[in-house]
Write a protein that binds this DNA or RNA. Structure first.
Lengths: 126, 126
DNA sequence: TATTGTTATACTCTATAACTATA
DNA sequence: TATAGTTATAGAGTATAACAATA
């Protein structure tokens, strides 16, 4: 919990390099190019209210990074599709965010390795 | 980074139990009873602008959880002191926040132990 | 000149509630 | 009745800039 402000700062800086807010960047990072998903699915990723997703997607769409598409199966649903421009930005963002935080580099190589493994298992159970 | 929303949700829930916002709870948790610290020091903990600290402390002070005290050494500085009521709430908060997240409990006992050790080393280098 | 803390402002995130359209 | 998404709204966090008091 003590690390949350640190992580937040790291992520905000990474997102800011591409003129994205943290939440916008989170959403973009979770949208896989070529795999449309309902707006709905972002609620589980961002852990926020559906009404927030609207605003976040609005801004991404206004910049031409994602598009809303009417679903064929359920006319209530709008699917989100990453545009080519969005995919390009997403890749750069992912690359930038993969850079380890300086504090992590101060750990031993063994600790870094173990931390990585354990966190992967933790994420997969989330 | 994928865990940030999860951590945030966990912390928001813990803080909410005591009618504190996440930032207020963070500040209170970092103020040790009996050890006055300048407002300034919260900037490094919350990693935010000094102007935000004013507002966050305002709300804690309005609830009688902390107090501003003029510093003897430097008349520009205001020291923050946790009140008895603040100390009581802080203890409950710390206790509540120490409860492991369900996702962590799904890890093996060995992983939990290692994660704890590594994170402690990480925090100490922060 | 530089620093501590404040104020004013604007933007984003966030939840709540009420709404439309579908199912 | 229930669900997907929107709108309106209000509260909180955040940074920027300008300011007063002090160093």
């Amino acid at each position: 919990m003590e690390l949350v402000p640190l992580l937040k700062q790291h992520w905000t800086a990474a997102a800011g390099q591409f003129d994205l807010t943290p939440a916008q960047a989170f959403a973009l990072k979770r949208l896989e190019p070529g795999k449309p998903v309902p707006m709905n699915s972002l609620v589980d990723v961002l852990l926020c209210d559906p009404s927030n997703v609207t605003g976040i997607v609005d801004k991404l769409e206004a910049r031409g990074l994602v598009e809303r598409q009417a679903s064929q199966d359920d006319r209530r649903v709008k699917n989100l599709v990453v545009t080519p421009r969005g995919a390009q930005l997403r890749e750069k963002l992912t690359e930038r965010a993969s850079e380890p935080h300086p504090a992590v580099l101060r750990l031993s190589a063994e600790d870094q390795c173990r931390l990585c493994e354990i966190l992967e298992r933790l994420v997969s159970r989330f």
